[in-house]
Structure formats: C-alpha cells, structure tokens
C-alpha cells in the first residue's frame, strides 16, 4: 500500500521550487551590488530565496499533511474560455470590435453545454449592440468597431 500524501501540496511545492530555480538562474545576469548600494539583482535574489524556502516548506508539508489528490482540470472550459479571449484580442485592432465580439461569444458559448445555437446568436447580437453603445458611442474608446478595410477603403 502506498503512503497517502497531499498531492496538491507536493505539486505546489515542486512548482514553487522550479519557479525559484528558474528565477535565480535568470537573476544571475543582474548585478547584485552590496547591501549599502543594492544592484538590480539584490532584491529579486532575496525574494527568490524566500520563494524557494517556502516551496520547500510546502513540499515537506505535503508529505505529512492530510491526504489529498490532485483535482481534475476542466480542460474543455479552460481551453475554450482562454482561446475565446485570445482570439478576441487578436481580432480587436484590425478586424474590429463587432466581429471580435461575435467570435468571442461563439467560442466561449461552446463552454456551456446547455447553451443553444439560438442563444448564442441572440447573445452575439445583443452584446455587439451593447458594446457599440457603451464603448464606441458612450466612452468613445479608440477601438475600431468595424473592420478597417470597410471604414477606410
């Protein structure tokens, strides 16, 4: 029988230690200076060492803590939501707010399994209208609403 450990804490500890190690490696390029004249690498080194120590602590605590497994990730939701927002960001400048909003609504809409095609369509129309009203007409932010090839022929 394998020993029961807190897998969450162990994973957390390992990640923190890794981050600290990578950080310290990057920090090698920055001058440390002396205590009275601290260089740009001084404070980060202190912080990174603290991070490493805490990571070690979390890791050790994981071996003694109450047993717990890693939680499953909702990959589908994570992927769809983050992809929707990334594509929105990529489309915003050149293709405009209207099309970007539609793309975001369609992609993120897939993340909720109870959502229907009709629901997505209605939501897209309403949100494009709200965005125009609030951001283009109301706040007059400098984001193009329609694709640039339509407005500047």
């Amino acid at each position: 029988m394998s020993k029961q450990v807190n897998a969450k804490d162990i994973a957390s500890g390992v990640i923190l230690l890794l981050l600290a190690a990578i950080g310290i490696y990057i920090n090698l390029d920055y001058q440390l200076g002396t205590a009275s004249r601290m260089g740009p690498g001084y404070m980060p080194l202190v912080v990174l060492v603290a991070l490493g120590v805490l990571g070690m602590g979390v890791l050790l605590a994981g071996f003694y803590g109450s047993p717990e497994r890693l939680e499953k990730w909702a990959w589908r939701e994570v992927g769809l939501i983050l992809a929707a927002l990334s594509i929105f960001g990529a489309m915003l400048e050149d293709i405009g707010m209207a099309a970007a909003t539609v793309a975001l609504v369609v992609i993120s809409g897939l993340a909720d399994r109870t959502q229907t095609l009709k629901g997505i369509a209605a939501l897209a129309v309403v949100l494009v209208a709200i965005c125009w009203l609030v951001f283009t007409w109301g706040l007059q932010i400098s984001v193009p609403f329609l694709p640039s090839f339509l407005t500047n022929p």
Partner: peptide, 28 residues
C-alpha cells in the same frame, strides 16, 4: 450562460483599452 460571455467581452475590451495593446489581453 448569458452572463459569462458578456463578462469576457468587457474583460477583453477593458484590458485592451488600458494601453491600447492586444498584449494586455494576452496577459489577461
């Protein structure tokens, strides 16, 4: 299911408009 896409759109535009930069959306 109607709320979260709206929140996402506001996040996207909000993040972009701080510096007018798509990079801020990717940071988000």
């Amino acid at each position: 299911k109607y709320l979260y896409p709206a929140i996402l759109v506001f996040c996207g535009i909000g993040a972009y408009s701080v510096n007018n930069s798509a990079f801020d959306v990717y940071q988000t």
